[in-house]
Amino acid sequence: MTKTPIITARDVDVFYGQKQALDKINLEIPENKVTSLIGPSGCGKTTFLRCINRMNDLVDICRVEGEIKIADQDIYAANVDVVALRSQVGMVFQKPNPFPKSIFDNVAYGPRIHGLTSSKAEMEELVEWSLIKAGLWEEVKDRLQETGTGLSGGQQQRLCIARAIAVKPRVVLMDEPCSALDPIATAIIEELIDELRKNFTIIIVTHSMQQAARVSQRTAFFHMGNLVESGPTKTIFTSPKDERTQNYITGRIG
């Protein structure tokens, strides 16, 4: 485990048209840890998350300024291939969104477009590895050809996680991955997140303070487009420096 952060954001501003959504964000994210982004709705945490794999490029009116470096490379530099970036920085969305394809094809989608495997056997191995890592293998191994949309919500989300890690990214971004799930499915995913950090750096946006406390080692608190404070999760939850953080984690605002 390296001590230097894998992701560094410096003075990141984001605008939607005239409206400023993020104001001078400076944040360092360590490798192979889970970092959670918390804060009230509309505080900019999802916007920040979507800067890290440049999903904001897909929004016409969105403009990003400042600098985000992953492994010392500026991801907004002119020579960056967004497609390659997104294969290194995977994403799991708020609502499970499996393709209306078979379970196998869902997981194989990313490796196929990036040409990661050279034979059918290799692909099968990779799909199995991803599903095992996502804790879904035992449940689906006998029905890989069935459609992914037929799974339960929690299974669908684990399928989406399998799909994301099949590309073997360095970083996995998770945008409130449990908000559409029941407590049992949530618990399974949280365990999974803890397991996944051995192989991946994980950044998770969550509305649940308990979830942030349970799964993450580092926490960053956003409020109205500002990064109020960040640090080890324990410190943020037990002795926050800023009054706004204090108010939010004790449930007085947000």
């Binding site: 897909l58 497609v83 995977g90 393709f99 989608y109």
Partner: peptide, 27 residues
């Protein structure tokens, strides 16, 4: 076709053409 399908595909590093051909058109 839901925007979530486009996001999922683009988020995996597919190009727009790949997304259209392999996700949107089949759906």
């Amino acid at each position: 076709v839901p925007q979530a399908m486009r996001d999922a595909s683009m988020g995996l590093g597919a190009t727009q053409a790949e997304t259209i051909r392999q996700v949107i058109l089949p759906a």
